[in-house]
Structures are given as C-alpha cells and as structure tokens.
C-alpha cells in the first residue's frame, strides 16, 4: 500500500500529458466561530486537467463547496482562514497572489456557477446588464458592445428570442432559463476552469438533464476543465471523468466514474450508492446511512466516518486513514483509484 500525495491522475479524457490546470495541495480551511474552530476542509488534494471533469461528491457540510469557494477566492476571511495548503492555477499558487491579481482571474480564467440562480442573480439589474458587465469590466467594452455580446451569449445557451429578452429581469425567466443565464455568465470570457456548485439541484428533473447536457457540450467546445460539485449521483454518471468523494473535509475516495459505481472502495461511498432509490426494490424500505455527518467543531478521532460505519474496528477510532493507492490482482496499481479506509480491500471485494 503506497500513500499518494496528490490526487490520482485522470484515467482518460483530453490532455492527459499536459500540466494540470488546477492543483489543490493539502488544503485546509477553518472557520473561527464563537463556539470554536470549525474545520471545514482538512487536507484536500485534487487536480483538474484541461478538458477534464472532476465531480466532487458529498453531503452538505462535507467541505465540497468550501473547497470550491477557496479556489474561487470568495470565502469570507474572516471568519474563514486557510492555515495551510496551496492552490496552484497553471503552476502558480493563487493563495500567494495579491487581491487584485486574484480578482482578474475570477470570472476571466476561473468562473463559477451557483446552485440557486434566482438568488444568485441580482434582482434589480437586467440579465443583459449582468452578462454585459463581464465584458465591460474585464475587457473594457462599451455598454453597447457589451449588450451585443450579452445577446450573443444568451443565444449560445439557447435562450429563445435572446435579443428581445436581454432587458428582462431575472424573475421574468423560468428556473431553467435562469440557470442558463448563470452558465452564460460563467462562459462569457471563455475561462479555462469552471466550478459548478450543484448547478441543477434547484431545477426540475427534465430541466436538470437539459442544463447538464448544455454544460457538458459547452465544456467540450471550449476544452475547459470542470469541477462539478454535487450530492446527486445520478447527475455525475454521464458527465464526469473522475470522482472525488468527500466526507468531513477530507477526500475519502477517488476513482474513475464507472469504477466507483461498479466497485466502491470506501464504506461511505457504498452507503451513498445504496441509498439511491431503485425501481426493482419498490416497496422496500429505503437504505439510509445511519447517523448524521459529524459536527465540524468536533470531528471524531481516527476515521471521521467511524461512528456511522458498519465495518468500524478499533483501529478506525484511533488512526486516521490516508488516501491510499488501490491495487488489484498481483499488486497491480488500479489507475486513478484511491481510498481512505483501513479496510478498502474488504470493501472493494464486497
């Protein structure tokens, strides 16, 4: 068993040999609150290459969104603090950049799509203004040019009658259309990396598929890296290349998307997969992982998942397992697979 420092390389997808677009190294984020220090992210490592989609999976409070906000540089500091770690964007540590340097990256090189488009768009400004603002601020365009660009973008994300709707306000659009506008805003300056934080959670199932398809299509067109944050295993399957599962601020399993579904190597991942409702089990009680996610002020010793884990042993309560490279038959490395479980072998084999 070897300990791997960085996230496992991508098994397939574009640009495998290129240097990573984004590399998160040993990132820690904590929040200083009145009750104490909440450790939201505790040593996360992952990489995203150009054209690659990384899905980050986890329950609320697992640190997936906080990691994304740290990458974006939109954490409120204080109360948040980044005591250690590096976030390398094209090899440069963004945490060492000045505020102004980071601002210029935001929106232009790294863009973010938020969950609830209605509250994430400004209610008192037209969508055309909010889209055009990207061009006016980052590209120095005039109002008129920016508006033309806004219409072009709305066309691109397939909003019908874009030219007629450019002066409408966010509340005049449907949920799906609003999320398209969020996507258009993120794509405006053709960034290299997009972080989508639960982009479809607030939408109807049929609209979810449309929005995900659109996102995937545009991502391929521009060969962008995509970090897709979600708790919805269904969304991930079609779009992602690889998955990182987070629990209590740590990555507990990484795997190419198909292999994770086929043979999870962490009891938590297994629990997540088992809790998807299935038609062939209609009438039976739904599976749920027992217990609640840990309080981030008091993360349990050892493996953070141990109080909820059906396989927990004494060692799980004392030793924190590291993300280990998985090996298959005859000690062959399983490419791209890692698990932070003392008993990953047993879990992997059912």
């Amino acid at each position: 068993m070897t300990i791997i420092e960085d996230a496992v390389p991508a098994p397939r997808g574009a640009g495998e040999d290129q240097t990573p677009l984004l590399e998160v190294r040993n990132l820690h984020v904590e929040f200083h609150t009145r009750e104490g220090v909440a450790k939201a992210v505790n040593g996360v490592n992952y990489t995203v290459r150009p054209g690659e989609t990384l899905a980050v999976l986890g329950e609320s409070g697992s640190g997936k969104s906080v990691t994304a906000q740290a990458i974006m540089g939109i954490l409120d500091m204080p109360p948040a603090r980044i005591p250690q770690g590096e976030i390398l964007f094209r090899g440069q540590d963004m945490l060492k950049m000045s505020g102004e340097e980071r601002r210029k990256l935001r929106g232009a090189e790294i863009a973010m799509i938020f969950q609830d488009a209605l509250s994430s768009l400004n209610p008192v400004l037209t969508v055309g203004y909010q889209l055009g603002e990207m061009f006016r601020v980052h590209r120095g365009m005039s109002r008129k040019q920016a508006k033309a660009k806004a219409i072009e973008l709305m066309d691109r994300v397939k909003i019908p009658a874009a030219a007629a709707r450019v002066n409408d306000y966010p509340h005049q659009f449907s949920g799906g259309m609003r999320q398209r506008i969020m996507i258009a805003m993120a794509l405006a300056l053709e960034p290299d990396l997009i972080i989508a934080d639960e982009p479809t959670t607030a939408l109807d199932v049929t609209v979810q598929a449309q929005v995900m398809d659109l996102l995937a299509e545009l991502k391929n067109e521009f060969n962008m890296g995509l970090i897709l944050i979600t708790h919805d295993l269904g969304v991930v399957a079609d779009v992602a290349d690889k998955i990182a599962v987070m629990y209590a601020g740590r990555i507990v399993e990484t795997a190419p998307v198909r292999e994770l579904y086929k043979s999870p190597a962490h009891p938590y991942t297994r629990g997540l997969l088992d809790s998807i409702p299935r038609l062939d089990q209609k009438g039976q009680e739904l599976y749920a992982i027992k217990g609640l996610p840990p309080n981030l002020l008091r993360i349990p010793d050892g493996c953070a998942f141990n109080p909820r884990c059906p396989k927990a042993q004494d060692v799980c309560r004392t030793d924190t397992p590291k993300l280990a490279q998985l090996t298959g038959d005859e000690g062959r490395e399983l490419v791209g697979r890692g698990s932070a479980c003392h008993f990953w072998k047993e879990t992997l084999n059912g």
Binding site: R103, R106, V124, V137
Partner: peptide, 26 residues
Amino acid sequence: RSDYVRTAIAKGLPRRRVIGVHALRN
C-alpha cells in the same frame, strides 16, 4: 451577505462596483 453579491465577487468585479452597483441598490 447575499448570493448575488457573492456572484458579483465571483465575476471578478472590483470591490467598488460590487458595493456601489450590486449591494447598494438593493
């Protein structure tokens, strides 16, 4: 603290614009 101001920051707008245009009018 609102989501739309967070969006404005994520768009890389200068602070002056985030406050003066996005936060103030609301």
